[in-house]
Simulated assay, not measured.
Amino acid sequence: MAYKAIIAGASGLIGSNLLNILLEAAEYSEVLVLVRKELPLKHKKLVQLVINFDDLDKFADTITGHAIFSCLGTTKSQAPDKEQYRKIDYAYPLQLAQLAKQNGVKQFHVVTAIGADKNSPVFYTKLKGELEDALLRLGLETLHIYQPSMLMGERERSHWLENLATGLFKIIDPLLICGLKKYRSIKGSTVAYAMFKKSLESATGTFIYTSDKIHTN
């Protein structure tokens, strides 16, 4: 049986890697991407739906299939307004999950971040924690939550701080051992491949993976 997948955030580091994997995977016959602008990519399996995520409800009938992968996320430089940031990192993924449940989608996969905690004093990790908490309360049939640490890989747009962090983690990673392994940096392509592999499993319930667990799956 060939599956249909939906990706939100297919232009980002993890989403773009995941898209390439799914397009080449025999297990998937259709990959629908929800995008704000069309991707410069053609493939017989690829369906692109250009939307305004504020109008996601208008496209509810298309949110069907085996698995939804939410790779949505932004940065302060891209969305300096906190309300817009909250929309992208919280409201849109949650609405996707609600539509997934409404339409009987088997699996929902979402990328959050290491340290996600709704009680965190840090805006970013607090927001990710609030999203996880809201998703858990939805009662989805199968929920996979990926909590990567520093993401490595070629980005469409990179900031000097990200480049600095990349260099620092190359030094720090070998020092993070035992319980600290979950804080090691991880390639976006590694996260994407783990998402693909987990989507082929039939287990139901809620599963949470930090970077060290993503590496071993």
Rank of each mutant, 00 (worst) to 15 (best):
8 A>V: 00
11 S>F: 04
20 N>C: 03
9 G>A: 08
71 C>M: 09
7 I>L: 09
36 R>P: 06
11 S>V: 04
60 A>V: 09
30 E>M: 03
8 A>R: 02
71 C>G: 06
7 I>R: 01
49 L>D: 10
71 C>R: 02
62 T>H: 12
73 G>H: 06
17 N>D: 11
37 K>D: 11
15 G>V: 07
49 L>M: 15
51 I>M: 05
7 I>T: 07
62 T>G: 00
31 V>W: 01
69 F>S: 00
47 V>R: 14
13 L>Q: 04
51 I>D: 02
42 K>N: 14
44 K>R: 14
32 L>W: 02
53 F>E: 00
55 D>C: 11
62 T>S: 13
18 L>Y: 00
41 L>H: 08
50 V>L: 12
73 G>E: 00
44 K>D: 13
29 S>N: 12
42 K>V: 12
64 T>N: 09
48 Q>N: 07
72 L>S: 04
24 E>T: 10
64 T>V: 15
60 A>M: 11
51 I>V: 14
18 L>V: 02
27 E>Y: 06
17 N>A: 15
63 I>M: 09
33 V>M: 12
24 E>W: 04
20 N>W: 01
73 G>L: 04
63 I>G: 00
66 H>K: 11
65 G>L: 11
46 L>V: 12
45 K>A: 11
35 V>M: 06
62 T>L: 10
36 R>V: 10
55 D>F: 12
21 I>R: 12
63 I>E: 00
66 H>R: 06
36 R>G: 09
55 D>V: 11
59 F>T: 02
71 C>F: 04
60 A>N: 13
39 L>V: 10
24 E>N: 14
48 Q>M: 10
18 L>K: 01
35 V>L: 11
12 G>Y: 02
9 G>N: 01
